[in-house]
Computed example of a mutant assay.
Amino acid sequence: MFTLPTYTAPDFTESFFVKAPSVRTMPAPMDGVVPENFYATTIFPEYFKIHDSWQLMAESRMDCVVVIADDRPHAIEFRNVKKGDAVVVGRHEDGENGVYVDHFAFRKKQENGDNFSFRTSNSRETAYSRDYDRLYELLEFERENGYILWVLGPAVTFDQDSRNAMTHLIEMGYIDALFAGNALATHDLESHFFNTALGQDIYSKENKSLGHYHHIETINRARSCGSLKNLIEKYKITDGIVSSCITNNIPLVLAGSIRDDGPLPGVYADVYSAQDALRVHTRKATTIICLATQLHTIATGNMTPSYQVINGAVRPVYFYTVDISEFVVNKLKDRGSLSSKSIITNIQDFVVNLQRNLSLK
């Protein structure tokens, strides 16, 4: 049975916190520009002393500035700062300038053990049985109590079984929102029309004659319909990820890329519009699972704090990266984002294994 860890906030009655100064602010000199010596947010719980009261920032995001409005701290992207906003300044994180960052939230104390040991990092040789079991328990809990965001690369749709498994996960209630690029949706729909992805049969792996037309023919059909919803209705599509999202009212955020064909209707061509659309869901997400997409994984991780405040209680955000490449799953940590749990495996095997085991719950 999965249970959330208990978060213990700092004791702000301690003398150091009582004597600490209130946070300092300076007005933004112009739209999209902040004062020198601005404070930038981290992924951890951050407290700001406002009118002698320490307040936790409820909704955070890495690499934002903090604006004090209505006596509350708010994480604001640089581009969204308005002239005159009260921007927090000072770069101490230990309370000296009215800002305290709880770097050790949810971390367990180091248990006794040898200083030297083998296999301390994840690799292709790592045992993941326990990680899978914990993930099953977590998703069962989150289906009833949390908000599960999935970030998908197109590889999920390149195999018949993994495409079907992901569709079943949506229908079983394990997906509250889905983030991907133009390719994921394109090849999912291509699989409906032609049973191929980039012209290759998703079961037999046979390359079909003129198969390289399939994805752009799919895009053309979708664009002629004006929207993915209209496409689903016109062609009576009842299989696949896109259809399941639309049928079950699951938000599908598709972000464009410089290399996209088309793109499909509904794909965000402007990166900042895509970022804003995704942040609607990262603000609510309690578990995030990223599959075989390095750039979208990093983008999502950079927008996701290590915690959420739910009904006044602070709880951790669980973040999984899954890929067959060790480099990809470790890249998020290199970018300074939250500590993620990585599983190194074939992505199609992962999805099928996950769905089959959750079906037994």
Rank of each mutant, 00 (worst) to 15 (best):
T3L: 03
L4A: 07
T8E: 10
D11K: 07
D11P: 05
K19M: 14
S22W: 08
P29A: 02
I43K: 08
P45G: 03
E46F: 13
E46R: 13
Y47T: 00
F48K: 08
H51K: 15
D52G: 00
S53E: 14
Q55T: 11
L56E: 00
A58M: 08
C64Y: 06
V67C: 00
R72H: 04
P73E: 00
H74F: 01
K83F: 01
V88S: 06
R91I: 09
N97H: 11
V99W: 03
Y100S: 05
H103C: 01
F106S: 04
K108W: 04
E111M: 01
G113H: 07
A127E: 14
S129Y: 02
Y132R: 08
Y132H: 11
F141W: 15
G146K: 02
I148E: 06
N164E: 14
M166N: 05
L169N: 01
D176I: 03
A177L: 12
A177F: 11
L178R: 06
A180G: 15
N182C: 07
H187F: 10
F193L: 08
F194P: 10
A197K: 01
A197Y: 01
G199F: 07
G199S: 09
K205C: 02
E206Y: 12
K208Y: 05
S209A: 03
H215T: 05
H215P: 02
I216S: 11
A222R: 03
S224I: 08
G226S: 07
S227Y: 04
N230V: 03
K234H: 01
D239A: 12
D239M: 11
I246S: 05
N248H: 15
N249D: 14
N249T: 09
R259H: 12
G262M: 04
P263R: 03
S273V: 15
A274W: 13
L278N: 14
V280C: 13
T282E: 00
T287A: 15
I289G: 03
I289L: 12
T293V: 02
A299P: 00
N311F: 05
P316H: 12
Y318M: 02
I324F: 10
N330S: 14
R335T: 15
I344N: 10
Q348E: 11
Q348S: 13
D349G: 15
S359M: 03
L360S: 01
